[in-house]
Amino acid sequence: MSAVIEDIQKSEPARPLIARIDWVRASPWLYTIALFAIWEASVRFFDLPYTVLPAPSRIFAAFYQYWSPIWKNSLQTLYTTTLGFLMAVVGGLALGLFIGWSKVIYAGLYPLMIGFNAVPKVAVVPILVIWFGIGAIPAMLTAFLISFFPIVVNVATGLATIEPETEDVLRALGARKLDIMLKVGIPRSMPYFFGSLKVAITLAFVGSVVSETVASNYGLGNLMSSAQSQFNVPLVFAGLLALAVEGIVMYSIMAWVERRMTGWAHRSTMSH
């Protein structure tokens, strides 16, 4: 928290403490602390049994007590999620470029994609188990299946929305479809692509955890389902907390990648 409160010695002594805090930077931490404080207070006030809703203090205690299994299973979940996500990035980018290439392919594959996306992925897990057995592979594939749709749609949209004037200017010069795609379409769809990664990574966690819950002996999903069968509710919540932390970390990485790779898109919207 020392970064939040600006260097006290250097700033003018006349300003009160409250003016020296960067409230925008501090607020994520403050709101999180407030959430836990209200939660703790409510549980104590209403005297809820920990098997219904454990207080944060109890969850942190479980976190400490079961540190070793939580750590191992978190790594397992992170591993399956990241692999599934990377497959989705490669596959989604490729299919998105393919779909965005022509209006016919776009029109033909779009309904199929919608139908495919509407299928609940939890219903697909048993099929994956029949094919690959239980364990990491179905989890990885579920993460892949659930997270690749937003990537495909975004890349295809970026390609399909090239300004007609730009296309005319280039076509009048004798540009082929490949030229237009390489010079305009693909660079143009990159902000959409990197933006979709943020959505995709959180969905990937949903996929892997669902699959681990149903069909795996490892991972946070499995940890939580076995904790639940033993009525160890604080451990279930500790698992959720670990997942939330992983989700936030991965999301921030994707947001950072997005800013690094497509800075021009953000600056250009700011200047308008």
Binding site: E163, E165, T166, V169, L170, L173, G174, D179, K183, A265
Partner: peptide, 23 residues
């Protein structure tokens, strides 16, 4: 055209050189 349709990820110079990459 009325819409200048410059590509925002290229500098002005690179935008101007674009037709040469096509013709």
């Amino acid at each position: 055209f009325q819409n200048p349709s410059m590509l925002p990820w290229r500098t002005t110079l690179d935008n101007i050189l674009l037709p040469l990459e096509i013709v």
